[in-house]
Design a protein around this nucleic acid. Structure first.
Length: 885
DNA sequence: AAGGGTGCCG
């Protein structure tokens, strides 16, 4: 039966009459008693009792010592704390149908409560129920109420409450407190008003629970009403009640009211100070909080553990490392020194300010550590981009025998994710399954992220589908996982599904936008852009730059520039634009834009120089590129990373300076990684330097024998040099290793819908028409002199050459949009692999025949085809861009 | 006799 069934639906004026008749001094000005009653959560009860109108002054049944020896024995067992025997004794008494006296039940219930024996308590409650003739006495009922509330079982507490013949204020207070603690704030407030209607005068124990409910519901209006009640009942001088009021105001974000109360207090205890100080911190008014903390010190009131933990975490918010160190030394000198929580917040403070060495020494100096200490270290190392150290700490934690909780597991998983440590991640998965921690949403979310980042997207999807409750982060993780596993199309399908169930946040939108940008889904991206603006998050965090990135990657530079002008022009925005122009092959614009960036006093960062180096590399501007590389180090004090070195190798190598590139690698201050050797291998392919290329490949396979891209490069190197036996050898190795070439995939957006074409698959409903159209073009190409220029490279060996890794899916995409879009409309295709020379020629031909602009964006750059020409320049294309597959 | 008020980890 629902709570509302026994909650009388009072009419407002009737309530007021009631109230006025009991407390003539109290009337109902303003909004004080305008209460709304929401439908209640259902609780099973088997009583239809209404609370008595006035249950004050009811006396508990006087307790009488047990009359018979069996009862005496039970009482004795209870008093000696032997729950197990007591329960056995109870069972035997029930079997023998010996009535159990109230005293025994009360003692037994208290014992259950003290021993935290929930199931035992429930058993006793059933025993009480079965022996119950009429209604529960106040004494027995209160004991049961107290026990169930302690166990957080408000359902049973309510059931007990309903079976009580009489109740005193204690009964009401316990129940209100139980609802408040269990998070049923509306129910607690409803009960509070029933206390008033019943004509009972609340006491100092009532208000803290009621105020906690107002705070929990973030209901300032109700909180103010209760404040008015406090004043009218003359409890506004009681320190505990006023402390609760301060806390209520603080949690409802009304710090000013809290402070007014605090200032008016005739006496304050430490809790008043703590509530007010931490209240300031919670409301981001750290300076005021610190000021109050110093006032407290001036008044020689010693801060306690709670004061210290909250002030220390305020240093974290303020970024005040100096004060943090002072507090640290204060903590060491005082009694707080041995406290785990205080130390935990110190460690957290150091870690969040990036001083992980201090955190480490504070941590190692701790006499004892709890799971929070360990977890703080682990997640702190993850945040400080030191996942290896996070795993080290976790391994030590395992040795010391501390059991990880759900937060620990989530943090360690995030370390595994950033390290790509699948083995460790799978061990944690097993652990989470075994301990039941997988039921926590955070744990499952971290697992999705870990599996995605370790390239096990199927596992990630499996976990996602098994989750009973998915939150925004679950959806975002799976969308992002699909995106980073090159399954952007599916990512967008999930995004659509998500919108029906859960509200995407700005992180979700960024991930979805990035997926759109990847597959060139402009309309879909625009929709998300509009959604973001409508939801009022369009300018949150990285979202403006994600939108900019969408337009740039879809090749809509004009729209991109508009967006750029709207955005706050941070380094990120400039970098996106620079990278975009570099991909469009507009080197001169890149240089110009960089000049303007510097003029507008934006400091370039490492990414900026990657864009610049790429632009130089693409246009063969070796001198300029090397100059930028120097400038980055000398003028901007940016230490080049592996990606910069790879860019320089590419720059030198593609320009034919292979030996210089090799020497450059040898001179590197760090160990070259596979992508750097890959750049050299690619250069060797362009300039047909088989020996050096083979050397580079050897270096790569020593470290990375699983990435398919390098095998394809090597294959192409051999193919371009006519070494067909070696090609076959490499392909055999690939097959042995089970490496599968990504199927070519092209996306085209027609009428706002993205269509994906997978090479080798023919399941598109219009596939027949598409093939007819393509056949037509091939026929015409044969008869025209258009294909003359590349006939030399297309004869005989064509199928064995680089083209085998293309998939040619872009042809289908183009044919599809020719059929389905109006004449003259430009066509935009996005591709997951590099466009092969044969496709390049075909598309050039098509663009001339149909007089349409066709843009194909492959993994490397944009090809804008118009009137039989491509923006990349045909020579340039053969040289540089028919290289990597 | 019991019940209430303050802090730390993703």
């Amino acid at each position: 039966m629902a709570l509302s069934a026994i909650t009388p639906q009072f009419h407002l004026h009737q309530d007021l009459q009631n109230l006025n008749s009991h407390f003539p001094g109290i009337h109902s000005p303003n909004k004080t008693f305008t209460l709304s009653f929401k439908p209640q959560k259902p609780y099973l009860i088997s009583s239809t009792l209404n609370p008595p109108q006035n249950s004050l002054n009811t006396t508990a049944t006087t307790s009488i010592a047990p009359q018979n020896p069996t009862n005496s024995r039970l009482l004795q067992l209870c008093l000696s704390g032997n729950l197990e025997h007591a329960l056995k004794h109870l069972a035997s008494m029930q079997e023998a149908k010996i009535p159990v006296e109230e005293d025994c039940f009360v003692a037994l219930i208290r014992l259950c409560e003290n021993k935290r024996g929930y199931s035992e308590g429930e058993y006793v409650w059933k025993a009480v129920l079965s022996s119950l003739v009429s209604l529960l006495s106040v004494r027995l009922g209160n004991a049961l109420l107290s026990m169930f509330v302690r166990f957080g079982d408000v359902g049973n507490a309510w059931s007990v409450f309903g079976r009580m013949g009489e109740r005193d204020l204690f009964s009401w207070n316990v129940l209100v407190g139980g609802y408040a603690k269990a998070g049923f704030f509306d129910e607690a407030l409803c009960l509070y008003h029933r206390i008033l209607w019943a004509g009972i005068r609340p006491d100092v124990y009532t208000f803290p629970s009621v105020l906690r409910s107002c705070a929990g519901a973030m209901n300032l209006v109700r909180g103010r009403e209760v404040h008015a009640h406090v004043v009218r009942f003359y409890f506004d001088m009681d320190v505990d009640v006023v402390n609760a009021l301060i806390t209520m105001y603080v949690k409802c974000a009304d710090v000013v009211s809290a402070r007014m109360l605090f200032d008016k207090m005739p006496t304050r205890d430490r809790i008043s100070w703590n509530a007010m100080i931490s209240g300031y911190f919670e409301n981001d008014e750290c300076l005021e909080g610190l000021e109050l903390f110093f006032r407290m010190r001036e008044l020689s009131i010693d801060p306690d553990l709670m004061t210290m933990t909250s002030v220390i975490s305020a240093c974290e918010l303020l970024g005040d490392e100096r004060l943090g160190r002072q507090l640290h030394s204060y903590v060491v000198r005082t009694a707080c020194g041995g406290n785990i929580s205080v130390y935990n917040s110190l460690i957290q403070m150091y870690l969040s300010l990036g001083h992980w060495k201090e955190a480490e020494s504070a941590f190692s100096g701790m006499e004892c550590r709890d799971v929070v200490s360990w977890t703080t270290m682990i997640s702190g190392f993850v945040d400080n981009l030191l996942p290896e150290k996070a795993l080290e700490i976790y391994k030590t934690m395992e040795i010391t025998g501390t059991m990880p909780d759900e937060v620990t597991i989530a943090s360690v998983l995030s370390a595994c994710a950033s390290l790509g440590q699948l083995d460790m991640g799978m061990k944690l998965h097993e652990l989470a399954e075994r301990t039941g921690h997988i039921l926590y949403v955070v744990v499952a979310n971290s697992l999705i992220d870990m599996y995605s980042k370790c390239k096990r997207i199927e596992k990630a999807l499996e976990i996602f589908h098994q989750m009973p409750d998915k939150d925004v982060i679950s959806w975002t993780s799976v969308i992002n996982g699909l995106r980073i596993n090159n399954r952007c199309f599916e990512a967008l399908i999930f995004f659509r599904k998500m919108k029906l169930k859960s509200k995407p946040n700005s992180v979700t939108l960024i991930s979805a936008l990035s997926a759109c940008a990847r597959v060139g889904a402009l309309m879909c991206g625009k929709e998300i852009h509009a959604h973001a603006l409508k939801a009022g998050v369009g300018f949150d965090g990285f979202l403006p730059n994600a939108i900019l990135d969408l337009y740039v990657r879809c090749g809509r530079m004009r729209t991109a520039l508009n967006q750029f002008n709207l955005n706050e022009k941070d380094v990120g925005a400039w970098n996106i634009l620079l990278t975009g122009y570099a991909q469009q092959g507009k080197e001169a614009l890149v240089m110009e834009l960089f000049k303007r960036m510097v003029e507008s006093e934006i400091n370039p960062d490492d990414v900026t120089f990657i864009a610049l180096l790429c632009a130089c590399s693409r246009s063969g501007m070796v001198t300029e590129g090397l100059e930028y590389f120097q400038r980055m180090k000398v003028k901007y004090h940016i230490t080049p990373n592996l990606k910069h070195y790879a860019c320089v190798v590419d720059l030198l190598g593609c320009a034919g300076k292979l030996n210089e590139a090799h020497e450059f690698i040898e001179r590197m201050p760090m160990k070259p990684d596979p992508p750097i050797w890959g750049a050299l291998l690619n250069a060797c392919r362009i300039h047909q330097q088989v020996l050096l290329g083979e050397f580079a490949a050897q270096q790569i396979f020593k470290e990375d024998a699983e990435s398919i891209g390098y095998y394809i490069l090597l294959c192409n190197l051999y193919a371009d040099s006519g070494k067909w036996d070696e090609v076959a050898e490499v392909r055999r190795t690939m097959k042995e290793k089970g490496l599968i070439v990504d199927p070519g995939c092209s996306w085209v957006e027609v009428k706002g819908k993205v269509h994906a074409f997978l090479s080798g698959e023919n399941f598109h409903p219009q596939m027949q028409e598409i093939n007819v159209v393509l056949e037509g073009f091939y026929e015409k190409m044969k008869t025209s002199d258009f294909n003359g220029q590349e006939s030399s490279s297309m004869d005989g060996v064509e199928t064995s050459k680089a083209d085998i890794f293309c998939g040619h899916s872009e042809r289908q995409a183009i044919a599809y949009s020719l059929i389905n879009s109006p004449p003259g409309m430009p066509i935009w295709v996005t591709k997951n692999l590099y466009m092969c020379q044969s496709c390049h020629s075909t598309v050039k031909f098509i663009s001339k025949r149909v007089r349409r602009e066709i843009s194909v964006r492959d993994t490397e750059q944009f090809h804008h085809f118009k009137d039989g020409l491509c923006s990349c320049g045909d020579e340039g294309y053969c040289e540089r861009n028919d290289k990597k597959a």
